[in-house]
Amino acid sequence: MQLQSCILVVLLAAFGSAIADTTCQLSIEKAKLRASESHLRIRGHINVGNNDCKPTSNENENVTTTVIFKAKKNFNFQDANNITHSGNECNVTASWYNKPDEYNSNKDKTQVFVPLRFIEEIKCNKDVSTKKPKHPTKTEKVTTRRKSAKKISKKTAKKTAKKTSKKTSKKTSKKTNKEASNESSSDSGEHYSGQATFFTPNQGACGDWNDDSDYIAAIGGSLYGGYSSESKYCGKKVKVVNKDNGKSVTVTIKDACESCDKTHIDLSPAAFAQIGKFDTGILKVDWYIQ
């Protein structure tokens, strides 16, 4: 009788241990994940690894569930500790179990909600390693110091260069603005001092079609020549300098302006905007045919 009692106690203990250590598994293919502040909702083709597992009804049940899911695309989500996980394959270990349920009243569409508070561990294939770096050797320390010194010297050199260039640019910019109206291009063959206006381009006298965004110009009819043939100026570059602010733009001659005199140049809107404001309408300029 005593022997039977002992055997019964052993069997009950073993059965109780089996219940306490219940292991469940959910494998999810073609998974789609959505994370909230409290749950992970995972949808896909869900396979149940242990049909004997029963949903946990309270937090004291010792059930360990491994959720393995794979997706086509990488995803990012946070666990209960606000640690970000990423990848398209993840293993989630939780002290919880729940059977998948259908959604949209479709047996082929199943989902499961995993409470974040029950999750013990998450491992994804794109997670950033949290291993601490090994302590550097003496040689590595020296190398690191040398590299750091080089970086610092480069940064210092850049800062110094910036400061120097700023000072230099401030000094030279004043001279440039004053002298810009009087300077001529080294390649210029002809120089005119007059006015600039703007026009709406279309098919020019040179034969090309242009629009507002092209950097082109039309020159006076007397300078362009006869309209029966293409002018020798077609396709030539012109540097136009605003006398008031020193700003300049380079354009290509593509058209003729019959009403413009010889020192008047008509610019496309894009070119005009580079050296002046539209509300001004007329600019005093020097322009150089290159």
Score class of each variant (00 low, 15 high):
235 G>H: 06
235 G>A: 01
235 G>K: 03
236 K>L: 04
237 K>H: 09
238 V>S: 13
239 K>V: 04
239 K>C: 03
239 K>L: 11
240 V>N: 05
241 V>L: 13
241 V>C: 14
242 N>W: 02
242 N>R: 01
242 N>H: 05
242 N>T: 11
242 N>Q: 03
244 D>S: 15
244 D>E: 15
244 D>W: 07
245 N>H: 14
245 N>F: 13
246 G>K: 02
246 G>S: 02
246 G>E: 12
246 G>D: 09
247 K>S: 10
248 S>F: 11
248 S>M: 10
248 S>Y: 15
248 S>A: 15
248 S>C: 11
249 V>D: 00
249 V>K: 02
251 V>D: 04
251 V>F: 00
252 T>H: 09
252 T>G: 11
253 I>T: 12
253 I>V: 14
253 I>C: 04
253 I>K: 08
254 K>N: 03
255 D>V: 03
256 A>N: 10
257 C>L: 09
257 C>S: 05
257 C>K: 02
258 E>W: 08
258 E>R: 13
258 E>M: 09
259 S>Q: 01
259 S>P: 00
260 C>I: 02
260 C>G: 04
260 C>Y: 04
261 D>G: 13
263 T>M: 01
263 T>A: 10
264 H>R: 10
264 H>I: 12
265 I>E: 00
265 I>L: 09
266 D>P: 05
266 D>L: 09
267 L>H: 02
267 L>P: 00
268 S>H: 08
268 S>R: 02
269 P>M: 10
269 P>G: 06
269 P>W: 10
269 P>N: 13
270 A>D: 00
271 A>L: 08
271 A>P: 10
272 F>I: 03
272 F>K: 06
273 A>T: 11
273 A>F: 12
273 A>Q: 15
274 Q>S: 15
274 Q>G: 07
276 G>A: 13
276 G>M: 04
276 G>S: 07
276 G>W: 06
276 G>I: 09
277 K>T: 15
277 K>V: 14
278 F>V: 14
278 F>S: 14
278 F>Q: 07
279 D>Y: 07
280 T>M: 11
280 T>D: 15
280 T>Q: 15
281 G>M: 07
281 G>T: 11
281 G>D: 01
281 G>V: 12
282 I>P: 03
282 I>F: 04
283 L>Q: 01
283 L>K: 00
284 K>D: 11
284 K>C: 00
284 K>Y: 05
284 K>V: 02
285 V>S: 03
285 V>N: 04
285 V>E: 07
